[in-house]
Design a protein around this nucleic acid. Structure first.
Lengths: 326, 326
DNA sequence: ATAGTATGTGTAACCGGTTACACATACAGC
DNA sequence: GCTGTATGTGTAACCGGTTACACATACTAT
């Protein structure tokens, strides 16, 4: 393996000059730069990142902490993070936390020892001390931590208004809102949006809390639809719940979208594959991941940040679970 | 930060003894071991993995190279790899290759510089020189490389026999087989299985090549169903294609499973959420990932391997796109 | 002429581990 | 007693970079 000393010898300069040239730091004369560049070229020298890390206590690793990559929301996010990270020369370490503070803490400790450059985090434990105390750059996704940590999130409230209005405009008179877990910020924002939009109308509605889980959602919606047959619209706080609702409707023989219209939230790929295709408030998950990564890299590289809150717009995607508006 | 020298001083021994104790290498007397253990405890010493890597040219990083984490097959795989890696003290680096040999090569080069311990790879480029030449431990998933590289794969052929027989037993008389891309080993194994099973029957069949892509599959199946209305069973080489087929059936008003039965292949989570639920030949993706990771770690740690080919059984999962057998 | 600043370079210590090698001791077998 | 082997330990070089600091020169301002 070629080392910086080999390059220095070949170029007839000292290792310090080579290092300065390589890092663009300090003074290097044009002559020296040329000699070093040639030596690097000829010897096909490549810098050893491990040796560099040992000194600088920095690396080009980024930790991506998320609850579970298996959750359909996250693969696209991970993809975006990885794409952007790669383009800036960073490498992504995947960490499934299961929302377990112990696992999160453990990852942070382990990766700190590897001199990780920063973290992108999706978690509800974000106020936990292991984040607050970390000196490392962190960017939060979807859920706010504290003022010092930048956040990238969808415009959940506006999205919920959009979704609710879509049902109202299409003639729904009795809407069931599947509210997400109250521990989740985005779920609460969606709830706020629903309340705002429904408050401006005069239609009846019901609210039921419902985990982001397919089978549970199906069960809950079956129960609700049987107990309240007058329901003619469902707005779900997640596509997975909406898929459960759609299944419940199918099981009960309710005709979607003629008797019952459904709108989900998230915009996961699966929505397209359902029959009928799921109308939904789509988040631009890729964009969220991409922005979060760019923001993180700016923090890592000490580029000043313009903002500390990045809101990504959502988009109403209408498919088969809603009628066309008259 | 506490270093090995601090520990040595506190324990009244040399750094060499501490290092030997920490690594369980060489001779360390009971007295010395006790003193070092106590010093480590008191100082809360933690070994610096970067410094270690620089010497040993090894790390506890594992590279997971896959085409695209967004493809529904891979998140569960990644999850399994991560879980097992974590339990053995390894960290997973996520690499989306898009099946692009350049990207793959680039990842391998980059990660080699970081002294990565080994790779788990899903790729069709596996015979490419950047794999063959790599001295590092590699385990291939789903697709064979060369004899030196262990492979973990589903029993695709048997799975296809299982899936085909499921349709035959349920009275299908005219089966459409959606064959996967011919460049893919697993797709070809599934084709072989289909041919074997169908050959033992006397029913009619058609074969059409079909990418693992939802919308394309839908289009192809719509065309086929219109041209060949006698088709009463579809066996798809992937669940995504099966989902497209199901959509096509819905669009054409074909009743599933009464007029038309569908069986997919893969067992991705989405299958459950479709209406009717998708019958499929499910791969145990988690298990594949877990085995691959254990095999890789054995190779990394030079534990001898019993085998070089690990076949994971598949399972027929019957849901709503097939009838109950009379 | 003189001080002060910008430019340019090299030496050597340092990051925090691992390990080759030298050396010491204990005990076995002959 | 002597040789050989197993056990135990420390010194110092090494992994491959970064960087503080000392030193040298050129140029500007006074």
């Amino acid at each position: 393996m070629t080392t910086i000393r080999d390059v220095a010898k070949k170029a007839g300069v000292s290792v310090a000059t080579v290092s300065r040239f390589l890092n663009g730091s300090g003074y290097v004369s044009a002559d020296a730069a040329k000699a070093v560049a040639e030596a690097v070229e000829e010897l096909e020298y490549e810098l050893n990142p491990v040796a560099r890390s040992l000194n600088t206590k920095r690396s080009s690793l980024i930790g991506l902490i998320l609850p579970d990559i298996t959750n359909p929301f996250f693969p696209e996010l991970a993809r975006a993070v990885e794409d952007v990270a790669l383009s800036y020369g960073y490498t992504v370490i995947l960490c499934n936390s299961d929302e377990d503070p112990k696992k999160e803490k453990n990852y942070i400790e382990t990766l700190k020892k590897k001199y990780i450059a920063g973290f992108i985090v999706t978690s509800n434990q974000l106020d936990a001390p292991h984040y607050a105390d970390t000196k490392l750059p962190i960017v939060a996704l979807d859920r706010a931590i504290n003022e010092k940590i930048p956040v990238v999130a969808s415009n959940n409230k506006e999205g919920a208004v959009l979704g609710t209005n879509a049902l109202l405009e299409r003639g729904c008179k009795n809407i069931l809102f599947l509210r997400g877990p109250e521990a989740l910020n985005p779920a609460n924002d969606r709830y706020d949006g629903f309340m705002e939009a429904i408050g401006k109308s005069d239609v009846d509605y019901r609210i039921v809390t419902c985990p982001f889980h397919y089978a549970d959602s199906q069960k809950i919606v079956e129960r609700e639809l049987q107990a309240n047959p007058e329901i003619d619209g469902i707005f779900a706080s997640s596509d997975v719940s909406a898929a459960g609702a759609l299944k419940a409707a199918a099981v009960l023989g309710r005709n979607v979208p003629d008797d019952l219209q459904i709108v989900g939230f998230d915009g996961i790929a699966m929505g397209e594959m359902l029959s009928p295709g799921l109308s939904t408030v789509a988040q631009d998950v890729y964009k969220m991941g991409a922005i979060a990564t760019r923001v993180l890299i700016k923090r890592i590289e000490n580029t000043p940040l313009e903002e500390s809150f990045y809101e990504v717009p959502v988009k109403l995607v209408l498919r088969g679970t809603t009628r066309s508006v008259e």
